[in-house]
């Protein structure tokens, strides 16, 4: 079918906003970041082309990038798998209609409506070693009543040594609700008949979950995993806020390292190289996950 002039104008008009936004705010800055990563530039003097020197520096420097990468990997694997299993568990339980499901659904989703900065500040207070610290207060109470854990209190949860570990519970608390709702929505879409049949065949709730629910929400599960990987790789606010805008090698993740290199140390080239690698990682993580999980979608 031949397009009329009106149609062309229409198409162009409707594509233009997205195209403009993408060009202006994604494509052009992206390409520029790529170029910066091949330059030595402090933001003031004339940029100098240095080829791949910035990338070499990432791996040969004093290893701060590798440490940041390690922290990202830790958070992705540990926090990610906890979020995934917990959200699946909660979704399955809510799907089977426990008492008060609606209340739980709202309660679990609640952290998602709070700004991430506010969440980080909230957890800073929870972990505080001053009198505000709820966690340390609880530990102290346990220590006096149960004699456990026998450690030096208050424990510096947000001290540089422990920060990365202390972030895990926060991430799990923040993210579980969203994935739970995501998976729950997928589960609600599964026809009840499947479960009825499984029940008649004598399948236990666990095997129903394993053989009916899981295969049928596979698509959404994969999307969830991709989201999780991307979110954990791009993690910024929790570390930035909990380390008071001053992370160091003990606490850096890639995004904070990037920011600090560019805006505190004025090493635009290095920072852009981190950004490029971050992009490549996210890109491949997505690609691999999608490829591994490619299978015919089941229609019902």
């Amino acid at each position: 079918m031949k397009r009329t002039r009106e149609q062309t104008i229409f198409i162009v008009l409707f594509l233009a906003p997205a195209f403009l936004l993408f060009t202006g705010f994604v494509a052009i800055p992206g390409v520029r970041a790529l170029l910066y990563s091949l330059q030595k530039w402090d933001g003031l003097s004339t940029p100098e082309w240095v080829g791949l020197a910035n990338f070499r520096e990432l791996f040969t420097d004093d290893g701060v990038f590798l440490l940041a990468l390690e922290h990202n990997a830790f958070l992705t694997l540990v926090a990610g798998s906890m979020v995934l299993s917990l959200s699946l568990f909660f979704a399955a339980v809510l799907h089977r209609r426990v008492r008060g499901a609606t209340v739980f659904r709202v309660a679990f989703f609640f952290p998602n409506v709070i700004a991430s900065v506010a969440i980080a500040l909230l957890w800073v207070l929870l972990y505080s070693t001053t009198d505000f610290g709820v966690v340390n207060g609880a530990l102290r109470w346990m220590e006096t009543t149960l004699g456990w854990p026998d450690i030096d209190l208050p424990f510096p949860f947000t001290g540089k040594q422990y920060l990365i570990y202390s972030i895990v519970p926060m991430l799990v608390w923040t993210m579980t609700g969203f994935y739970m709702v995501l998976f729950l929505a997928a589960m609600e879409g599964i026809p009840e008949t499947f479960y009825e049949v499984a029940e008649l065949e004598g399948a236990s709730p666990l095997s129903q979950f394993w053989h009916v629910t899981l295969p049928l929400i596979r698509e959404v599960l994969v999307v969830g995993i991709v989201f999780l990987a991307i979110t954990s790789l791009k993690l910024f606010e929790p570390v930035w806020i909990m380390d008071n805008e001053w992370p160091s090698r003990d606490t850096h993740v890639m995004a904070t390292l990037l920011y600090q290199k560019v805006f505190s140390e004025y090493n635009v080239g290095y920072g852009s190289a981190v950004a490029v690698l971050l992009f490549v990682l996210v890109f491949f993580a997505t690609l691999v996950t999608l490829r591994l999980s490619r299978r015919e979608a089941l229609e019902y």
């Binding site: 972990y127 505080s128 070693t129 001053t130 610290g133 340390n136 030096d152 209190l153 208050p154 424990f155 510096p156 949860f157 947000t158 001290g159 540089k160 040594q161 008071n244």
Partner: peptide, 8 residues
């Protein structure tokens, strides 16, 4: 002070 390393 105990916990000082986690104080701003």
């Amino acid at each position: 002070q105990k916990g000082a390393m986690a104080m701003t």
